[in-house]
Structures are given as C-alpha cells and as structure tokens.
Design a protein around this nucleic acid. Structure first.
Lengths: 329, 329
DNA sequence: CAAAAAAATGCACACGTGCTCAATGCTTTA
DNA sequence: TAAAGCATTGAGCACGTGTGCATTTTTTTG
C-alpha cells in the first residue's frame, strides 16, 4: 500500500461509482441507493478510507475545532477543569485544540492568533486575560470567545465565572463564626482577576464586621507560596484565622502552620480555602473550603458554545461552603 | 466588515498584486521583492489576514497537528505529563489536538480513528493500549505512533517508558534496607501494563530476598483506592512495609495507616511510592518514592516525534530513588 | 551599451471535499 | 400505455493555499 491516506476518488474507482456517490455515502441525509452505499462502504473498508476533515472544513468553513488556551495545566484546579472540558467537547463532536501558554500571562495573545489560522470555531480561555485587540479580532472574524473565571468589561463576549464575591463572603462569615479576632487573607503574586475579587470582597466583609485583616500575597499560585505565607505570617501569634483564595495555597499554609509554626488547627487557627480541589478532601488536610462546581462551570461553557446567539453573556455559577475540619465550630 | 475570515485573494486585490505574491510573502524563502512584500504586509495588517492552515495542510499534506489521546487527565501524573508535553509541542511549532477518553480503556480506538480524519502527523498515547489493528493502520497511513509507559510487542512503533522494573527493584531494596519482614504491594484494579511490570518485578526481587509479600489490588488508580487498601491490609499487624505502585495510591495508603489504622510511619511501617508527583513532597506526606523524570519522558517523546526515521523504537528512561521520610533508615 | 544572468511575477494546477444542477432511471397515477 | 412524479446519479464548481513553469523585469558582466 502506498504511503499517505486514501482519497474519495480512489474509493470511487474501486467501487465503480462516481466520487459524488462516495461523498454522499458519508454525508448523513444525502440521497444514495442502498446498492451504491453498500459498494462504497465495502470499498472504503477495504482501502481504509477516512474522510479528510481538513478538506471538509475548508469546503463548508466549519473546522469543528475548538481552541482551548490556558496555563499551568498541571495545577489541580486547571487539570480538573481541562479534564471535564475535553470530555464534554468530545461528547459533542467537537475537537479540542490545546495551546498551553507555558507560564507568562501575556503569551496568550499570539496563541489566540494561531487559533485564528486554524479557523477555530470558538476559543475558550482557561486563564489569563486576552488584550482588547484580540477580542475585537474575534468578533470581527465571527469566532466565539468564552472566558472562564475572567471578567472583562464587554458585552460581546461570553464569560462563565464562579461567584467569587459570594464565596469570599461565605469564607468571611465562616471565620467570623469561628470567633476569629485577627485574620490573614492569602493570595498569590500573580493577582489574577478572580483572586483579586475574592480578596477585596473578603476584606470588605471583614471590615464591616470589624475584624482585623492582614493581607499577604506573593509567589505563584502554588503549595509553596502558601507554605511561605504561613511561615511569614504566623510569627504573629495574634493571627487566629486565614482565608486562602486558592486551595493550593491553603494546603501549603496548613502544612506550614502545623509543621513549622506549631499551630493546632482548628483549635488555635481556622483556615478556609477556595476551589475544593480533590486534595482538599484528603485525610491529612480535610480542608474547609468554598467549592466551585467544576461540572456546572463546564456545563455553562458548553452551553455558551452551542447557543445560536450569545443571548446570555455573563453566567455566574453559584458556590457552596463545604464544611470539613479546619475551621472551628 | 463582513463576517468570516479574510483570504489571500482579498489581500492581493487591496495591495494591487497577484495572489501568488501574497502567498510568497508569507512563505519563508520564497522570492519576493521588498517593495511588493511591504505592500502585501500593509494590506494584510489592515485587513487582519491570517493564513488558513486547513488549506495549507490540504495542499502540502502537513497538518501540523499532533494527536494526543489519554484518560484521567486530572490525575496529577497525567496532568503534569500533559502540561509539559503541550508546552513542548507548541515550542516546536506543533499543535496539540487533545482527545480525552473519559475513562474506559477501550475508548481510545475510535479516538485514534478520529485523529486520522484530521490527518494528524503523529499520535501520542498517554494511557491505554491501542489494539493491534489501529497500530497497523497507523503505519499504513504513515502516521507516527508514540506510546508512553506502554510496551507492546512490535518493532514499528515508538515507545517511551520509565524503567519500571528497575524502579521496583529500588523500592524492594529500600524496604529490605528498612528491615521489613512482611510487605504489601498495592496496585489498582485497572492493571495497566506499567503497574503490572512494577508489581511483578517487586515480587520477584522480594522473593529472592526471602521476604514475605502480600499483593492487594482493586479500584481505580486513585487516592481512595490507596486508602481502602490501607484499611484492609493493615488489620494484619505483621505488615511493616508497603510498596504502592503509584504515588496517588501511596498517599491514600499513608493516610489510612496514620489516621485509621494508627501506625507510626516510618517507625512501625515503611512506605515507598512510585512517580514522584508534586504532592509526594508536601509536608504532610514527605513520601519516599521512585521518581519518574517527567522532563526526560517528554523530551524523548519530542525526539521520537522529530526523528527522520524511527531509528530507536524503544526508549527507556532511568528512574531514581528520592529519599524522604516514609521509609525507615 | 549589449548580452547574459538573476530575480521577480503571474498563470494555472493540485490538494480532497460538499453541494448545486441537469440528466437519467424508476415508480406511480390516470 | 403514456405521462407525470420522484429518487438517484454524475459532472463541475468552490473552498484557500503552495508551487512549477513560462514570462517579464532587474541586475550584473564583458
């Protein structure tokens, strides 16, 4: 057998029919007789014929490709999200063209431009915010743009995001319930919009409740940063509560508190996280945290993808407190 | 501006040149005068022109797409691997078409066939083993197939895998060094080839050393399975060592041992894992484990991708013991 | 300045597919 | 049986691009 793929032409020749017949056989709803269909399918099977989707896409200008751009994909949060998303896309007959932006936030602009070249039907941004000009190009080219946990001030873009401020409020209320007198709020140095929203909402709620808040931020959104935060903050013995805007930070913080700074949790210190990644439920942590609904998030994203018109631009997904063992009752 | 993308034709018209000139402007090494090039670039910029890669791929039969198929992508191990892989592909100018096989092992055959339709240049399989017939089709169509941590008995396929049996030996030696008298070996019920290799090599090594081994396997490759294994196995008080063929299992096992079964690690019980996922280094665990080199694995994969001929089919990546605190000295 | 060499340019084809349109064959109706 | 209706079929165009080939323009050489 010659190198390369079999074309519809060759199948047609072998089956003794026209190329049109082959095309019709593989096009649902087209008009072909049973006899011809059978001959074509037989020949196709023998030759190992596969429709060429590139040619298909070129023709009817539907590539079936959905661009997914993100960064830090090994982070439990993003990994979980990508996992569900890629399954959902496949289930709906869409293909997932994944572009990983290494780390820098500003890398995503060229990646989106690359997706234009592949005529992606839609682009899903997992993290990082696209510059204004890119958004313009998307609508100019008729490419749907969907941002996850990212809010920009435009009405022509779909955004799906968890209710960060509500979640931060829940966290605040929980720490107040734990009778904390002085609490820390920990975020990473990358200052993603989601983290900023959580931080400010938390501060505000605590301010109205008259609880003292110290803010810490630094490093990447990682276990290590949380650990570092714990080591630096907990030299202050007055701190008896902490809200980590990300579970990963919270787990690092917890370990620092227990191992390095000798705090008993939740007796001496109450800790609340955000995300509810799988590790938060592990026995060594049992972190009390604000859960994002991964499934609801991806469900909304897929809906936004299929909606004929972008009737609802902004989808806010509710969050829920999951009670475990790191906050005092 | 009209809906849809700008074509080279339109750019040519605006720049007052032929379409060929446009094509050549964007083809490195083609012959165009500076004057024309400038005019074309100007027009392209104004119109927002992007080369259509689908058409490009159709023409010269290089799609630039690399298919990546896998399952359980939110697992720390696979997530890390996918992260590095997607970055590496992008860096080499290749695009990553990701197909997530939900969970079933047998789902990957249709996914690979789907990749044929997109004329993927190569297919990287992260997990699950492709049936013989699929492999045949790959070589028939000139699609390079690369399996990670999967070994099949063929000489026409690239395989990149960690040195499982060596790793299992290291684990065995370490538990012998810890003076264990009766050890457990824990694997998941899915019985992936990698897990089988590790289990059998471990058993064999222990047998020659005259140490009693009990094998446990069940559930999925998850924290929960490890936890369950711990609860079930450790009712036997004689067990003083365990080799979990995956870190995820090991972490669950550890938590069960400490929390539920009240063992002191490593005083009463030595535990060794395999993989060295990020969580293994967290302070609550500090798992002694056999490290796979993620970077080396992906490096070999990318090399196999670019190699002109598949000169080296089988790449075995060395593993290394990382000493932490769950095995007695 | 003339001739030769080199560079630049446009035309036309190929890539593999879906779909329209006219033509053909088959079935139903009067 | 003839006419009319309908399902089936094949030819040909369009999609957007890269490139070989012949032609024209520019540069270099003697």
């Amino acid at each position: 057998m010659a190198r390369g793929f079999v074309t519809a032409e060759e199948v047609a020749k072998r089956a003794g029919v026209s190329r049109s017949a082959v095309s019709r056989t593989f096009t649902p709803g087209a008009s072909v007789s049973q006899a011809v269909r059978r001959k074509v399918l037989k020949a196709a099977r023998e030759l190992g014929y596969r429709v060429n989707r590139l040619a298909q896409g070129l023709n009817n200008d539907r590539s079936n490709l959905i661009g997914v751009v993100g960064a830090n994909l090994s982070t439990p949060f993003h990994a979980k999200q990508l996992d569900l998303l890629s399954i959902g896309l496949l289930r709906r007959g869409l293909q997932c063209l994944l572009l990983n932006a290494a780390d820098a936030r500003k890398d995503i602009a060229p990646l989106i431009e690359l997706l234009f070249e592949f005529r992606a039907q839609a682009i899903i941004v997992l993290s990082g915010d696209p510059p204004e000009s890119i958004v313009d190009q998307c609508i100019a080219n008729g490419v749907r743009l969907i941002l996850i946990n990212q809010k920009i001030d435009r009405t022509d873009t779909s955004m799906v995001l968890s209710d960060d401020s509500r979640g931060a409020d829940l966290a605040a209320l929980r720490l107040i319930e734990a009778r904390c007198k002085k609490v820390a709020v920990i975020s990473s140095g990358s200052q993603t919009p989601a983290q900023v929203r959580r931080t400010t909402a938390f501060k505000q709620k605590m301010a109205t409740a008259g609880v003292e808040v110290v803010a810490w931020s630094g490093g990447t959104t990682s276990y290590e940063s949380g650990y570092q935060a714990g080591c630096e903050l907990l030299v202050d013995e007055a701190i008896d509560g902490a809200f980590c805007v990300t579970d990963l930070l919270a787990l690092g913080f917890l370990d620092a508190a227990r191992t390095e700074m000798h705090r008993r949790v939740p007796a001496d210190l109450s800790v609340v996280g955000f995300d509810d990644i799988p590790q938060a439920g592990w026995k060594s942590y049992e972190l009390t945290t604000v859960a994002q609904s991964f499934s609801a998030l991806t469900e909304r994203v897929l809906e936004a993808l299929e909606a004929d018109e972008m009737e609802t631009r902004l989808q806010v997904v509710p969050v829920a407190m999951v009670e475990r063992k790191t906050a005092r009752r």
